[in-house]
């Protein structure tokens, strides 16, 4: 959810049209969650995504649930720290151990930033500079120490690509 928000916010700063749609059902009370982000040069109709250009998947259950929801020849970036089912056909799948990498960085919560970095390393949808500005702006007051580790995690992801 946060990785999606950062990407949407950064794309907005770069003057693009964006929508961000969260899972707001029982998911938010435990279990898996997801969000759908659309970045476009023209006005966006539905914020709902049937088949995505790219899926960033951080756990095994979500991989099972969403792996078929990618366009033909689309990209899936998956967290191999969890057991994942077989890759779907017709999609390019990149597997990285985001959770293990985050633990090595000293904070399991930055797995999403590493994943976001690896995605932008592949796609370059928004500039790293804008992502850094967004992370800085979104960090809650009094928790500015989080900026550094999130940036570090993002950079590590970027280098994976």
């Amino acid at each position: 959810m946060l990785a999606g928000k950062i990407m949407a916010e950064a794309a907005m700063q770069e003057g693009r049209y964006v929508t961000w749609l969260p899972a707001y059902g029982p998911e938010v009370r435990g279990g898996t969650a997801f969000c759908m982000v659309i970045i476009s040069d023209s006005e966006i109709g539905s914020p709902y995504i049937g088949e995505a250009d790219t899926l960033i998947i951080l756990n095994g259950l979500s991989f099972q649930k969403f792996k078929c929801r990618v366009k033909k020849n689309g990209l899936i970036i998956a967290n191999s720290s969890f057991d994942l089912e077989d890759d779907p056909q017709n999609a390019r799948v990149l597997r990285y151990p985001f959770t293990d990498l985050a633990l090595k960085q000293g904070n399991i919560k930055v797995a999403n930033m590493i994943a976001l970095g690896s995605y932008l390393g592949q796609k370059g949808t928004v500039a790293t500079k804008t992502i850094f500005e967004t992370i800085r702006r979104m960090a809650p007051a009094g928790k500015k120490e989080l900026i550094k580790i999130n940036k570090q995690a993002f950079m590590q992801g970027l280098r994976l690509a």
Partner: peptide, 10 residues
Amino acid sequence: DGMLGQMMEP
């Protein structure tokens, strides 16, 4: 509606 309420946009 729920979609408009939940979605984020600039």
